[in-house]
Amino acid sequence: MHELSVTESLLEITLRHARAAHATQVNNLYLVLGQLSSIVDDSVQFYWDIVASGTIAEGARLNFRRIPTQMECLDCQQVFSPTADNFDCPNCASTRVKIIAGEEFYLEAIDIQ
């Protein structure tokens, strides 16, 4: 729903890094999105094509790497992927659980020319 804000922010970051590298064109963006943080769907590409128009990033392709949520039980050290309706440790039912993956929300790299 807030793809426009996300896209504008992405463009600012991309252009800043591209200019610093003296790029004349940006061809790819590599995004890392954790399942817990990500509300970014493929429509971002649509917004991107609009906001990046007329910049050196025009036409760049957005590539998403989605990271599933992973948790670790602090009582029995079991590492697990939670189900949609239960986050308890599947091994010992503990709620002393640490989130070890799934919160990523960053731009990892760009391809430039």
């Binding site: 922010s9 960053y106 990892e108 790299a109």
Partner: peptide
């Protein structure tokens, strides 16, 4: 020829 450069920046860093 693509040249990949690392960024590693939070997507909403400007907001932050």
């Amino acid at each position: 020829m693509n040249n990949r450069i690392p960024v590693i920046e939070k997507i909403l860093s400007a907001n932050d």
